[in-house]
Design a protein around this nucleic acid. Sequence first.
DNA 1: GCCCATCGATGAACCGTTTCATTAAATGAA
DNA 2: TTCATTTAATGAAACGGTTCATCGATGGGC
Lengths: 346, 346
Amino acid sequence: MSVNLGLKKGKGQVTALDVANELGVSISTVSRTFTPGASVSPKMEEKVLAAAKKLGYRPNVLARSLMTRKTGLIGILIKDFDNPAYLKIIDELTLAIQLRGLQALVINMAHTAGIRESVDMIMQYQVDGLVETSGSSIDPKLAEECQRVNTPLIQFGYNSKKTQTSAVCCDDFSGGMQAAELFYKMGYKNLAYIASDRSDPSMERRDGFMSVVDQKEGNKHVPIEFAGDWTYKGGVDAASQLLTTNSPPDAIFCADDIIAMGVMDAARSKFGLRVPEDLGVVGFDDIHLSDSYAYSLTTIQQPYNKMIEAALDLMNRMIEDPSRPSEVQLFSGKLVIRESHNRTRT
Amino acid sequence: MSVNLGLKKGKGQVTALDVANELGVSISTVSRTFTPGASVSPKMEEKVLAAAKKLGYRPNVLARSLMTRKTGLIGILIKDFDNPAYLKIIDELTLAIQLRGLQALVINMAHTAGIRESVDMIMQYQVDGLVETSGSSIDPKLAEECQRVNTPLIQFGYNSKKTQTSAVCCDDFSGGMQAAELFYKMGYKNLAYIASDRSDPSMERRDGFMSVVDQKEGNKHVPIEFAGDWTYKGGVDAASQLLTTNSPPDAIFCADDIIAMGVMDAARSKFGLRVPEDLGVVGFDDIHLSDSYAYSLTTIQQPYNKMIEAALDLMNRMIEDPSRPSEVQLFSGKLVIRESHNRTRT
DNA sequence: GCCCATCGATGAACCGTTTCATTAAATGAA
DNA sequence: TTCATTTAATGAAACGGTTCATCGATGGGC
């Protein structure tokens, strides 16, 4: 009676063959209609499109990938879901990937099972490329495997000098410099730094910060404390250490915003200090709530949109030419002025 | 000279044929070795595994999916990346998916292009199932399409009474009740609610809240304000409204934590109120920073781990039996006691 | 020594596409 | 009209697997 409108035949789905039969043409003709730049007459194209729509046909990307050797899948590796900074990254990254007609396979590296299994899983899905955002150093096994099977790998927001992998990241050094310069400009005298761990971004930010201190005050001692990780609690603990010494700092630059929030809260709640009057604080990343009344945190914002575009452009080039040498791109962060740095606010 | 250790042949990769040739057996034998439950002798299995390892062979999941009609891909739809609550959901959801041997395709629905294109894209990747976490009502086009192509669709954390789709979510009504009961217990007198929008969870939380108020005080008027969305700023604005009326509330239940934070900050910064002494606040979700010194927010925590397991179990059953009727599962939230509700703290 | 049952490996068909060498048709020029 | 040339559609062979009917070998029971 009525046409079988897209109902699955058997367990299957509507296939190019169904469309071809509907019109009495060959499968190839249908295929070419959905292949940009292939040779097909306008009227035929129209007919195929109409039939496809009528039957509810959609090309099977996975079957296509067998021939084209492109899946359109980009793997995103994330380890540290604790840090709110990653929400923005995932958001913008997935969106940018989709706008390029690709899809994001998000891989949670917190997986307690070994890295080996994770790598296997990822590779089985034939991703066209991998973006590592974990914030920690790339696993050598993974890098090696990518090399072996010719899968582009880009490190996002983190440039390890130890590995050869391509990277797109924020200029941590200059970020650190900006923080120190701002503190001096606002009249703070005793600067300190709270690192997260010994990871490259954390150390790079310190180095930039120190370079300005050295330039202004020779090699004055600057206390450095380690939060241990990129967490609020780490910030609370590190600040507690720093503020109980006999010459506590009056300005603290933090490896990132979430640590900075811990620092501010510790200073206020445990030491009765006012921010920014008694203690200046500058963070890094500009996460959610950095602009809240509670924190109003002056911070260094990473230009994620630019970085993501650059990363995907680079990824494209690497996919086209797998033998391309690795490459590192740096983007400078933007100082976002709020109140936590401003002891002279009116 | 040396064995071709996993180097790609041509542009290709190591394939089952390579392994078969290496051992002089058939492709089927290799295939069966990687198919759990297939009939293969122990010595042969060992030999194949060894050869596979030596050559660096990994089955191509995508090619496999052509025959098995299972891709192992679970699509996760997210619209509202602004809300930090989603970080936890993505984290636990992707992890749980991986632990079941599947992979998560994250689809950002903020895509400005129409829903039509998004649906097309998703379906082209032949996902085994879809989890919608967007927090807003499911698009009818999507639901319809899932129905048509027999793809299980589960709504996570949101139960719309308007659609037929399966859902796994928090018992919003009882959550609202818990908040009201707590306020009464702590001696607050003038309760209010700040909704986000008119979405089901927001309204359901209100209804639960009101049911307790009605029970305790007959039909006393309870002011309700709308934040407009699930944001900090929405909370600030709504609280500002609520607190400038001539009989301002002394306790506010908020549709979620991020709104609650806006409320607390507005109360403190713009009205000079102390929380919890002058104003009690209870939120919903238990996001990052809810346990910070700055907020110490009493809130209702959704049992995400249980909910996620339930959702994936349900998904499994739906995949096995696509004709299964839709189903809704409710999990009650857990009150997390901190300080924002406690005017009598010592 | 013979027959039957069992188990493991094989070969071919198939999954839904693309690609490319052919073929067929249409166009244009002479 | 004829022939050369362009254009469009076709058919078959991939792509990397799974599945299943079939076949051969092995071993046990008598």
